[in-house]
Amino acid sequence: MSTAPVQGAPTADTPVTAGAPPRRRSVVAQPLTRAQYLTTAVLGFLGLLAIWTAITLSGLVNPLFLPSPLAVASALAEQAANGQLLEDVTVSTYRVMCGYLLATVMALPIGLLAGSFARVEAVVEPIMDFIRYMPVVAFVPLTILWVGTDDAQKFLIIWLGTFFQQVLMVSDAVRQVPSSFRNLGATLGLSRLQILIRIVFPSSLPRVWDALRISLGWAWTWLVVAELVAATSGMGYRITQAQRFLATDVIIGYVLVLGVLGLVFDQLMRAGGRSLFRYQKGRS
């Protein structure tokens, strides 16, 4: 783009009055700058860490149940040094990606169709709504009986936990495209199929992307559930192993790593969305 798009930060354009501006308290909350936001967020994390440290130092809680941040860090460092952590993270990420991509590849076309055609919606959505209220956890024993305890079972659990929700969210994203867009396509002489492909689907993409980003978070949750029950590798497996040896420092360390992984993937999806949908103002 040769033009300079005016994106975000409209507050930076507000004229600065000469001399000392009078300090006024605005009635409307002012948005934070990016730097302010980040500093505040980091302070929040540090505060949490301080509380945790204070509790462990006070001796109120047996360190066996709540180890200090330092103990957790050293346990995690040990796991990292002997390569265990990287191996577990790799295996788990691989499983999440496979299960999630499988669900996404199936949910996208079905969701797009269900959002576009009332007939498809009538077939698909009641079933999806019914299944998605079934507890995925209850399917764990069944999936073990069906496909065993290897990777396929993890994929299946992740798929069960995300696919049905994705279909509903994607079809909803398509339905949210204003009908005036369809009318526009019709007056331009486009066929119904052309309207869907050239106008409706591209219009729904930002919302579809958000739906996929949110469901990626769920995929991580379901992965750990699957690995806790029946696995011989992965983050969830390591946590159950650590439980056996009362290694609460490892458990907490792994839980924290899972949190960080979730955050990283979420930020990656957000960055992807920002670059794909640059035309949207103020997309976060």
Binding site: P178, S180, F181, N183, L184, T187, I199, P202, S203, L205, F277, Y279, Q280
Partner: peptide
Amino acid sequence: GVVFQSATLLPW
């Protein structure tokens, strides 16, 4: 040719 009340421009 139809001009609608909302501009209905394709945002992308």
